[in-house]
């Protein structure tokens, strides 16, 4: 068989992975993208939409770094497929500030120094936004329990609880 660098193969050598077009409303703006079925929402946000605020920690639902809000509820974006969220409203840490002003939770995390390395922080803040919307946590114990899906390897927990209490007081 002769080889020519300029001749294109007549047909596909292997079936190309079939991409599926989807529309998401991300941080209030419509985003159209075409993804392979096995693309997680986390990878779609980071790799297709360049929203790298949402972090990949464990990729298995065990750390909470990938927490985003979908239709107002906090979920682990690493354990859902982008194609399953067709038409959904997604809010990431990049979408929390309003008119150039930090979200009360973002401000509270700064005020209370509620991080060290910062890797868990965007997940903590999105999770706390979900927690406040749920309205189930009143006491510090309840905040700790309902924030247990967000691990902080740096151990900033006391300051995270204090920051959330401050933001709850304001909203």
């Amino acid at each position: 068989m002769t080889h020519s660098g300029t001749t294109k193969p007549k047909g596909p050598i292997a079936a190309a992975p079939e991409k599926i077009p989807i529309t998401l409303i991300v941080n209030g703006a419509e985003a159209k993208l075409s993804v392979a079925p096995w693309t997680t929402l986390l990878d779609a946000l980071r790799d297709y939409l360049d929203l790298t605020g949402t972090k990949k920690g464990c990729d298995h639902g065990q750390c909470g770094a990938c927490t985003v809000l979908v239709d107002g509820r906090r979920i682990n974006s690493c354990l859902t497929l982008a194609v399953m969220k067709e038409g959904a409203e997604v809010t990431t840490v990049e979408g929390l500030a309003r008119n150039g002003e930090l979200h009360p939770l973002q401000q509270a995390f700064i005020d209370h120094d509620a991080f060290q390395c910062g890797y868990c922080t965007s997940g903590q803040i999105c999770s706390a936004a979900g927690l406040i919307a749920e309205g189930k946590a009143k006491t510090a114990d309840e905040i700790r329990e309902l924030m247990s899906g967000n691990i902080c390897r740096c151990g900033a927990y006391p300051n995270i609880v204090a920051a959330i209490q401050q933001a709850m007081g304001r909203s």
Binding site: R74, I75, N76, T80, S127, E134, G149
Partner: peptide, 9 residues
Amino acid sequence: GASQQLRNM
């Protein structure tokens, strides 16, 4: 069981 994020899903 699990966490609030996981229970939401």
